[in-house]
Amino acid sequence: MQEIIDFKEIDAILERYRYESSSIIAILQDTQAKYRYLPKDVFPYLSEKLGISTAKIYSVATFYENFSLEPKGKYIIKICDGTACHVRKSIPILERLRKSLGLSESKETTDDLMFTVQTVSCLGACGLAPVLTVNEKVYAAMTPDKATELLAKLKEEN
């Protein structure tokens, strides 16, 4: 998929960080907030404007878990698999979600770009374990059945 990039928006982001190459992580975060992933065409543009090689930007983007080079779903569901959630059975929830959406470890996003399912390291909401988040909203004390209900609700919203 070829994403149409509005470079004026990228310029605005760069402006916000005064074109400082040390702010590349924040710049990528803001870019991702815009497109829900990091479109390939952004890289050479950032490289030119910030004076760092595209390979370097790519190296930073692939180091950090939160960056995605693939388009993500409208709803990003993150299942916490920190220790507390793990011992309170978070994996069956993950399996249920993947199964109902036809996803797997290697395929995180549905073809209609509606849902992305991934695990996340501890969200620090251990008291509510097991938890998951949908676009940063926390859902506490989940079970596989509750997850199914949640999916149904999200689908209905559309």
Partner: peptide, 18 residues
């Protein structure tokens, strides 16, 4: 941006440096 290792001092400063 999601890296446990950034809790290590020199990794953390590297991360702030972009």
């Amino acid at each position: 941006a999601g890296a446990f290792v950034c809790g290590e001092g020199s990794a953390l400063t590297a991360s702030i440096e972009g």
